[in-house]
Amino acid sequence: MTAPRRDGEPLLRFEDVGRGYGDGPHAVRALGPVRFDVRSGELVAVMGPSGSGKTTLLSLAGALERPTEGRVLLRGRDLATLSAPARAALRRRDIGYVFQDLNLLPGLTALENVSLPLELDGVRLAAAREEARAALDAVGLASLAARFPDDLSGGERQRVAIARAFVGPRELLLADEPTGNLDSVTGERVLRHLRAACDGGRTAILVTHDPSHAGWADRVLFLRDGVLVDEAASGAGCLVRVEDGP
């Protein structure tokens, strides 16, 4: 995103956002109203039971859905006012999305899946492949780059989808339960990677059921029945006695 960064302006703002489906007696309010900001460089986790609106929140943030109430602002711009091509470009270039059901293309190898968004964005093939390889390497999958999704385990597919969301200059990463199939060591590795990306200036929203994964976030938002009920923010101090390690 090339818009100049104005101080104090959040990267993402949910302004009393709601999303309903259907009407009349079948109307459901999947989310809302919710109000929160995400600042640049933050890692925010969202937790809540199934059906509490986590995926809806993320798809609104990623301009995959439009709110039925309120506004979603990215760098101060209302996503609902963007033209369809502008929204498509935003999703290709600025927002990396890890879908709950991954959405990997079965006819492409892991490397090609990761490289595709760059190629679609006009990056030269060799450069795109090189970046894609680095992204796979960062999630520990360099050796499986030539495999097709069907020949990977659930956890490996998840990591390919994460690499695809990370590749390129995307500054907002939206991940919908991306660590569900990962063992604790691999899960921690992915979270360290995500954390480092945010420390390096990227911004991420992570939907997760794993408290120990949410623990990597600066803030944890708790959703219940479509509304935010609580927020945990990592402060200073620690119950472990030693102040700075041994």
């Binding site: 360290r192 954390r195 408290p211 120990s212 949410a214 623990g215 990597w216 976030a217 944890v220 708790f222 009920v229 609580d230 927020e231 945990a232 923010a233 990592s234 402060g235 200073a236 101090g237 620690c238 119950l239 472990v240 700075d244 390690g245």
Partner: peptide
Amino acid sequence: QRQRVATMERLQRYTRRKRA
């Protein structure tokens, strides 16, 4: 609910230590 926030914040602090 209060406990959930407090425990999550404790978990976040431990994770910060682990990061370092």
